[in-house]
Design a protein around this nucleic acid. Structure first.
Lengths: 206, 206
DNA sequence: TTGCATTGGATAGCAACACTCTCTAATATT
DNA sequence: AATATTAGAGAGTGTTGCTATCCAATGCAA
């Protein structure tokens, strides 16, 4: 398959495919001459993945590249690979000042209350801190009880996810990394729909 | 307080405040002369909210304006106000073709399985459909069982949220609209941390 | 009251982003 | 032989979220 065939098969414009090649999101085809290369099904699948990440998931090209690199070349332990995947996902946070003895007070309190194992260098800790601070700044602070309720519920979901992890390591990394990214929009949509469902029942009951 | 005082009090640059005024995110101060206006605490609070929405929550200026307008001027029923709020939130989806008899097959199946009340015009339905289609395209389809598990759990969380809704209508709208937007990053961060916690315990157990 | 600082308001500029277009020389295809 | 397509590189485009510059009017301190 040549580039125009790949464009047809994937629904992505030739110019855009060339852009992804240049940006290193898509592996090159096999060159058959100075002006020709052939592409196969792996390119079609990869393009679908790229479009899913840059489209519905809302990643930038940079973030998508980071995720794809992790899938292509995962580390050996799940814990740190997950950490790196989350670091590539929005919202982007900057590392805390090394001199600060307690850079994430809100997040630390929440995680201690939940009795969760965590590493302060893990990006999601900073993300949690930032999100909690933002809610506070906006005048809607999250109470410890609510945080506990949220945390417990989400931990159930996480356990559900990891119980269903494929046994083969390579597939496991793909499952966890892509699952983190791809399932988040589903979770947000379901939460929004659940709110509306509950609100509708309340309105009807009035 | 003049504009430079507002800048000091909020930590937002004068030029940026002017930008928000122009864009209609921030209400004007009270003009005291042709070249002077005074700002008060309501402007400081609003700026904090704007920064929370455009920063950690990741909204564009356009989206933030839509949310703020809803908070300023809510409708009377919670259900439709929530609908409009979700419509302003990412991921943005386009309306389905009116001719299509079943524009959201995946979302419909999920919501029917969950026995949830929903309106197909509600933006989160399209968001769910898009997210489910993206997961499929990327090669990680979400099984009906998983969707059911996610949906049930998130419905519990939604019920928890609405139980704690303030009684006063105006405050209720602010709570639901801002809570939808502001708490989402918290939920994502908690989910990511829960995954890592579960993964760490698995690694240790090996 | 003189003179420097600040203000509101308008306009222009800028850097990042995700493409998209154009061009060229080398090949394929017919 | 004529036409189309390709890889690869570079420049151009439209959008976004500020940021900088200017101006004339005003405030305020000496």
């Amino acid at each position: 398959m040549r580039i125009s065939g790949l464009a047809d098969a994937s629904g992505v414009a030739v110019a855009t495919i060339k852009f992804y090649l240049r940006e290193g999101l898509l592996h090159p085809g096999v060159a058959t001459s100075a002006t020709q290369a052939t592409y196969d099904d792996s390119h079609v699948r990869r393009l679908r993945l790229i479009r899913a990440l840059t489209g519905p998931v809302g990643l930038s090209v940079q973030q998508a590249r980071a995720i794809l690199e992790l899938v292509d070349d995962p580390g050996h332990d799940l814990y740190s690979t997950l950490g790196r995947a989350v670091g590539a996902l929005p919202p982007t946070t900057t590392a805390a000042d090394a001199a600060d003895p307690d850079p994430y007070p809100r997040a630390r309190a929440a995680l201690e209350a939940l009795e969760q194992v965590y590493d302060p260098r893990f990006p999601a800790v900073a993300q949690l801190e930032t999100a909690l601070a933002a809610a506070e700044d906006a005048g809607l602070p999250i109470s410890p009880e609510r945080l506990l309720a949220y945390g417990r519920t989400l931990r159930e979901l996480a356990a559900y996810d990891l119980e269903r992890m494929p046994p083969e390591p390579r597939a496991a990394v793909e499952y966890t990394v892509l699952g983190t990214a791809l399932y988040e929009p589903v979770i947000l949509a379901l939460r929004r729909l659940a709110h509306q469902d509950v609100a509708a029942r309340l309105d009807l009951g009035q």
